[in-house]
């Protein structure tokens, strides 16, 4: 069997776990947990430099852009224009063309604003970005985003930071079965079994931040997520047994000593 790699756009990875870099208590922990996750791709946010704190340490002093594929995001953007500006700046900052587009609808749910997301995706694709797009678990929208030219579609499992797992596993499967681009479950994963489930359903990868950063032991959870994604992927490739309504004996039903 050829090596099972995760291909997205012109990029290729061994790991199917993408991690975020938010919410950690300090940069040292971010670095250690990211190493423990064995992820090769890490999301970052684009924000104004604090001009009164010049010379302060930066995330990228700890997360080496030569070692990791940096995936700039548009977190906090509520319209297409802001998202486009943000990613143009990210590309200028580090030369990154693989990006995570998310355009949010409101601050309470952080659900995506699909209309603005599609608008932004159309512009970014034309400008040569390789767009990995955060969206709802809606198969119709997923297809639309693929048609627009996104290199990966990333349906949410549940709201960002909620840790509630996969709300609608059937839709994740439907999205995957209809897709010709990688499907990444992004948001909602709370613990290892959620990540394994996402990959078992056929998702090509999982994007996880809060579940690792808010674990009591961040590095141990990062390892757990690494294992879970691998286990889920293997189970998906192996092809699971059918579910049955009734029992099916595991031991032979002949050769009993009382026959």
């Amino acid at each position: 069997m050829s090596k099972d790699t995760f291909k997205v756009g012109t990029y290729e990875f061994s790991s199917r776990l993408i991690v975020g870099s938010g919410k950690y208590k300090d940069f040292a922990t971010t670095k250690l947990a990211t190493e423990a996750s064995e992820a090769e791709m890490i999301t970052v946010a684009v924000r104004r430099v604090n001009i009164t704190e010049a010379g302060k340490e930066n995330l990228l002093d700890y997360i080496d852009p030569k070692k990791y594929t940096i995936l700039p995001n548009t977190a906090g953007c509520f319209n297409a224009e802001d998202a486009i500006r943000t990613l143009r700046l990210a590309r200028e900052a580090g030369g990154w063309d693989l990006v995570k587009l998310e355009v949010l609808g409101d601050t309470q749910t952080l659900y995506p604003n699909v209309v603005e997301t599609i608008k932004a995706a159309e512009v970014l694709v034309k400008e040569g970005f390789q767009v990995m797009v955060y969206t709802n678990d809606d198969p119709i929208v997923a297809t639309k985003l693929e048609d627009v030219g996104c290199v990966a579609v990333m349906p949410l499992g549940n709201p960002i930071g909620s840790g509630r797992g996969l709300a609608n596993p059937f839709n994740i499967r439907v999205i995957k079965e209809r897709a010709n681009v990688p499907i990444v479950v992004d948001a909602g994963i709370g613990t290892a079994s959620d990540a394994a489930k996402a990959l078992e359903l056929g998702a090509d990868a999982a994007l996880i931040n809060t579940a690792i950063a808010e674990a009591k032991d961040e590095c141990l959870m990062a390892e757990a997520m690494c294992d879970a994604v691998r286990a889920g992927r293997k189970a998906f490739l192996a092809g699971r047994m059918p579910k049955r309504a009734f029992a099916s004996a595991s031991s032979p039903t002949e050769g009993y000593i009382w026959d």
Partner: peptide, 24 residues
């Protein structure tokens, strides 16, 4: 970056300077 020395600032310019921080 190649234009940092050639683009001259003008009165009332709106400048944004950004960098990367932790995010998911």
């Amino acid at each position: 970056k190649s234009e940092y020395l050639t683009i001259h600032l003008k009165e009332s310019d709106r400048i944004e300077i950004v960098h990367m921080i932790g995010g998911g």
